[in-house]
């Protein structure tokens, strides 16, 4: 990884042009906390590095009038951790950001890098997925948007077209009485998740679930939404029986592997436990919110 050129464009357009010129040996760099490790093994070697942190627009957290949020791709975990609106309305995202590495890593690591590295264990991804986030993408042909789930095609693989750039992750506004939760299991503190789960739910005045979603990390080739969970839970009371259904559905949805960190069977069981706990957290927070997210 010794001979590469470094570029610090000031605009997205410049970044796209540099990337197009550099071809397959060029890479976008955000915090570099994944990229630098990947560069040590990259074949063919990386010849051009395009640093996105100089692009002001990518470092912004924009709160819309309805309370929804656009997170610039180069927003760091540390910035998420101390953002008042995110702390108030998306505490699960803050918890996930705060779970990434140690403080020095969180000062560099970005949400765009976390998403684009496409690790199934990425901590912010399950929360973003459960919240129904959309990816905003810039490319030669202009801007487009996709549901986040459609961005990942496998471990470390994206559906982005060659040279395309993630500019932001858009979080929809949350309906009233909506809460979110995030849980992760590791072997020791400061570890990549063995299993993680995020949950979102909306309750009506009678404590019945009107909408719910759950996403799992580290139990499939990509971060995974638990399919059919919203429909299965709709109308049911947010009680222990419902949480047991969440556990069951999540464990059934998981497609984990065996490795030296844990067996597939354990990961599957834990996917259920983490999902249940995340959903319990989400329900508690939904009850605690008085009105809408705005």
């Amino acid at each position: 990884m010794d001979d590469f050129t470094y570029h610090a464009p000031a605009t997205v357009a410049e970044a796209l042009a540099l990337r197009a010129e550099g071809g397959g040996a060029a890479r976008y760099l955000a915090g570099g906390s994944d990229l630098l490790l990947a560069m040590q093994r990259a074949e063919p070697p990386v010849a051009r590095v395009i640093d996105l942190k100089g692009i002001a627009a990518l470092r912004e957290i924009r709160v819309a009038a309805d309370g929804g949020v656009a997170l610039g791709a180069a927003v760091t975990m540390a910035a998420i951790e101390r953002h008042a609106h995110l702390l108030a309305h998306y505490p699960a995202l803050v918890a996930a950001a705060a779970a990434v590495g140690g403080p020095p890593i969180r000062n560099r690591a970005t949400v765009g890098g976390n998403v684009c590295n496409a690790s199934p264990a990425a901590d912010t991804s399950p929360v973003l997925l459960a919240l129904g986030a959309r990816a905003v993408i810039a490319g030669g042909g202009g801007e487009r948007e996709l549901p986040l789930a459609e961005l990942w095609s496998g471990p470390g693989r994206l559906t982005l077209l060659d040279g395309e750039l993630l500019t932001a992750v858009r979080l929809p506004a949350l309906p009233p009485r909506t809460g979110c939760g995030f849980q992760r299991l590791t072997r020791a503190a400061m570890d990549i998740a063995l299993v993680s789960a995020a949950a979102v739910c909306t309750l009506d005045r009678g404590d019945r679930i009107t909408a719910a979603a759950c996403a799992l990390g580290a139990v499939a080739p990509t971060v995974l939404a638990v399919a059919g969970l919203g429909a299965a839970l709709a109308g049911s009371r947010a009680d222990a029986g419902t949480l047991a259904r969440v556990e069951h559905l999540a464990a059934a949805a998981a497609r984990p592997i065996d490795d030296h960190r844990a067996s597939a069977a354990y990961r599957r069981e834990m996917a259920g436990v983490m999902a249940r706990r995340a959903m319990a957290e989400a329900c508690d927070r939904a009850r605690a919110t008085s009105g809408g997210a705005a």
Partner: peptide, 14 residues
Amino acid sequence: QNAGFLDYKIPSAL
């Protein structure tokens, strides 16, 4: 299988 600190886990201060 785990010749590095990502995979070989030692306790941290936490």
